[in-house]
Design a protein around this nucleic acid. Structure first.
Lengths: 137, 137
DNA sequence: TGTTTTATGCAACATTGTTTCATTTAGCAA
DNA sequence: TTGCTAAATGAAACAATGTTGCATAAAACA
């Protein structure tokens, strides 16, 4: 069962404010990763700056993670597992649809460990698939 | 042996202009992927708009490809192989250094074929490694 | 309830990217 | 070389996106 917006805030020791609850509800209902603009469109009126700060806070606290999709737009998706303030664990692939532009987390596709080139130290990896999503096919 | 700026323009049926030659020279000398701003800094004075259009043209014609690195910045790198107007073949991984922010093409690391989830049609894939690069270690 | 800390809303600003149009230049043919 | 045509450039104006500082409002807690 998915956590509620309130649960998520409590889990991460965040104050429960109207804006945060609303933003979390949007994420909980969304099936794909959301850009700043996507979220803004869900509101009648919302201060852009507040949303920037809300997303930044959520990301720092491990509530959401950046979903790299190869598009110019930065998107976020809810962390599924046990991300903390200190480390994200979004070790799954993302799918980006060339047609509708949506970005979907593919939880089932984990990112395999790879060997770093000589002299390089690895701290993480991304994997992005692109093509046409099920809805657009 | 690497191609010269002029060679590249001729190969892709592009007019040889001062700006294009200069931009290509910067790419040829650079070891890492370059953002719009990176390139702008190499010039004493250069019209931003012209650079946007130059990069767009280069990308469409298969001269450069987007180097997805998980940072907010869009970067480009020279296509190594045989990219055409119709299809890019930048099927190699990119390394993004968390420390210096540089993005390096790892030509030796090819992106393995993966199976698309049910209902999805794949047209490509990205792979990004992040960590600390050799120079920053 | 009152106090402290944090979040919000606003203004102003900075950066990044796009569109339109006049001018200049490259490519090409006479 | 000269002139023509198509493409590239540069400038202005605009649009979108992101940041900083500060006053106000709200949440948490004693």
């Amino acid at each position: 069962m998915p956590a509620s917006a309130l649960d998520i805030l409590v889990q991460h020791s965040l104050r429960k404010t109207t804006v945060r609850m609303q933003v979390l509800d949007i994420f909980l209902q969304a099936k794909e990763a959301l850009s700043h603009n996507d979220i803004e469109l869900h509101f009648n009126q919302l201060d852009r700056i507040t949303l920037y700060r809300t997303l930044k806070t959520f990301e720092e606290k491990g509530v959401i993670h950046k979903a790299i999709d190869g598009s110019e737009k930065l998107k976020y998706a809810l962390c599924s597992g046990h991300c903390s303030e200190h480390a994200h664990e979004d070790h799954h692939a993302h799918f980006h649809c060339d047609h509708c532009g949506k970005t979907i987390c593919i939880e089932s596709m984990h990112i395999p460990a790879v060997q770093a080139p000589v002299g390089f130290q690895l701290s993480g990896a991304y994997r992005v698939l692109k093509g046409t999503c099920a809805a657009c096919s």
